[in-house]
Design a protein around this nucleic acid. Structure first.
Length: 588
DNA sequence: GCCGTTTTCGGCCCGACTGTTTTCAGTCG
């Protein structure tokens, strides 16, 4: 029983927590955290990478952590971790998850009052026992109580991008309407389009900082604010009723570029850009590029470089402007230095949507309604892909109804008279036993075939992988829909051997989907990037069950951009002629 | 513990805010 990437990352994170509690030097702690983060973003199994002896090629993994990974892969445990958890009660680590409580306070509560659980801490706080500890007071005690309440209120650690982005836009709408606001935007992980979001970062530019307090006051009194976490002239934080934290920073217009760059992150990307700045004799922060001496001390008399745009910031560093979705320190800085960043796909490149549902299965609109709505959105062709017969809960189509539907699709296609082309396909289930839900003699009659996993998603790795392989190797299947079957923020992807899946896809020329629904975003970016590296084609589809859901395409595009995807590799950027040629050739 | 267009040793991003402080420590991002 070998450990998964996720389990190994979790162990490293817990090791970091405990080391921090023990007062270990922060850089050693951060090494474990960086390693955990890096491992979570891997598109391959650590065991496969270890077999190739390439663990230390992973960013943040050196000889020591490489050996620790090997230890976990071979023995299923980590000696260091086993030792550490005997030294620190697990509840104390849990206490550090309370907002406002870090390692020092957790340590204090434990050592002074023998508190080892969140529950115990809450009781002590309510009994007024914390206020007399050194460095604590009545206010701090109250903050602990509020932090614990917020922790229990919070349903999930992270929310889907599809929840966070509209929430951010809604607040930005209010702020942009203020006369003091010159411009406003979202930064942080929302701007980088991470599939799930921990908190929202907003920026507002003003002419004079004296305009700031009024803006802050509006912000912290928005109707959906549950509590104010902090309020200053340049920075305020609130928690919304749904538990989401929102940070707002106000800054002068002439510093917009440095601030936007700084607050967009990621942290790893910023560390790199700051190092580059230092190498060029500047300290880079959210305010400016400041000249430094050889010790790195800022020269107060020397003029600072202010940047109103991000392009200026990157230019001063000798870099191409880097799209936010790439800013994860995963090779983008090196490419920007060589001026060889790819031309990423944009929403304008998308001409088609190859995956949508209608009233024939579990969709809410008819074939004609979906086609006309797609046409209004500028699509040149679409494929109707309702569910197949096994998916009873979604009113999947029997073979008879499928063929009947084909006639209807042909009628609609003709009626629309070339203003948009409508093709007939299916989203066919890959059954639990690995069989496909329609026989080949039916599939061959369809224009386009998607095969997807919907049921028995918790099967063993071998069986899940076999199911995907059966679909990939069927010459009539054109696309694997949402290949990992994850649901954000909480349903884990299937446990498939993605190395094997990718190899098979590479051999057969099948395409893989980036499902644009924000509850899926599957393939995720790191897998999309690997697919691209292997020359595997992709398609970005909305999987729309309603007309409105056709507007979610942008989430798929953002995910693709995070995966360095260029338009040419994506089926639905192609011309109608190129697409039909590809479809026809595949069916042979 | 990682890492190298200053370095295989000695750095490692740095500022805002809060609450407790008589000048700063803790937390966060």
């Amino acid at each position: 029983m070998t450990l998964s990437n996720r389990q190994i990352a979790d162990i490293f994170d817990t090791v970091a927590d405990i080391l921090q509690l023990k007062g270990e030097i922060i850089h050693r702690v951060l090494s474990y955290r960086r390693a955990a983060e890096s491992i979570r973003e891997l598109p391959r199994d650590l065991s496969a990478i270890a077999a190739e002896d390439k663990l230390t090629e992973i960013p943040g993994i050196g000889d020591t952590l490489g050996d620790k990974i090997k230890e976990m892969l071979t023995t299923g445990k980590l000696g260091l971790y086993e030792r550490l958890i005997t030294e620190i009660p697990v509840g104390v680590v849990e206490i550090m998850r309370i907002n406002g409580v870090g390692p020092k306070k957790a340590q204090l509560f434990w050592k002074e009052l023998n508190i080892t659980t969140v529950q115990g801490l809450e009781q002590a706080a309510r009994a007024g026992k914390l206020r007399d500890l050194s460095g604590m007071g009545v206010k701090s005690e109250q903050k602990v109580i509020e932090g614990i309440e917020a922790l229990s209120r919070r349903q999930v650690e992270r929310v889907p991008l599809g929840t966070a982005l509209p929430a951010a836009e809604s607040i930005l709408g209010v702020l942009r309407a203020l006369p003091q606001c010159l411009q406003a935007t979202v930064a942080g992980s929302v701007r980088r389009a991470r599939p799930t979001i921990g908190d929202i970062d907003l920026l507002v530019a003003v002419r004079e900082m004296s305009d700031s307090p009024a803006i802050m006051q509006i912000f912290v009194t928005l109707p959906n604010v549950a509590r104010i976490l902090g309020q200053g002239d340049t920075k305020s934080s609130v928690e919304l009723l749904n538990g989401l934290q929102v940070d707002l920073r106000v800054l002068p217009q002439e510093r917009w570029g440095t601030a936007l760059q700084y607050f967009t992150g990621s942290q790893a990307h910023n560390i790199k850009t700051r190092e580059i700045a230092l190498a060029k004799g500047f300290s880079l922060n959210e305010h400016a590029l400041s000249p430094v001496d050889s010790n790195g001390t800022i020269l107060e008399d020397a003029p600072k470089l202010l940047c109103e745009t991000e392009e200026q910031v990157y230019h001063h560093l000798g870099l191409q402007w880097i799209p936010p979705e790439l800013r994860e320190d995963s090779g983008e800085i090196e490419r920007a230095r060589d001026q060889t960043l790819p031309r990423l796909i944009t929403l304008d490149d998308i001409h088609a949507d190859l995956h949508m549902h209608t009233t024939w299965s579990d969709g809410k609109h008819t074939i004609r309604e979906m086609a006309e709505a797609a046409r209004e959105r500028g699509r040149k062709f679409i494929v109707i892909t309702d569910h197949s017969r096994s998916l009873g809960v979604a009113n999947g189509l029997s073979i008879e109804r499928l063929l009947e539907q084909q006639n209807e699709v042909r009628r609609v296609d003709q009626a629309l008279n070339g203003s948009i082309r409508v093709f007939h396909g299916t989203e066919m289930d890959i059954n639990a036993d690995g069989s496909l839900d329609y026989p080949d003699e039916i599939l061959v009659q369809l224009d386009f075939v998607i095969a997807s996993l919907h049921m028995s998603l918790r099967q063993e790795r071998d069986q899940i992988t076999l199911r995907l392989l059966n679909a990939i190797r069927n010459p009539h299947v054109d696309l694997i829909g949402h290949p990992r079957a994850q649901m954000l923020p909480n349903r884990e992807p299937v446990d498939a051997d993605m190395d094997v899946v990718f190899t098979a896809a590479q051999q057969t020329g099948i395409a893989l989907e980036i499902n644009a629904n924000p509850a899926r975003l599957d393939l995720e970016a790191q897998y999309a990037r690997r697919a691209l590296d292997l020359g595997i084609l992709l398609a970005i589809n909305t999987d729309a069950h309603t007309i409105e859901q056709m507007d979610l395409m942008n989430y798929g595009v953002m995910t693709a951009r995070r995966g360095w995807v260029t338009p040419d590799h994506v089926l639905n950027t192609w011309s109608l002629e190129r697409f039909t040629t590809w479809m026809t050739q595949r069916g042979q």
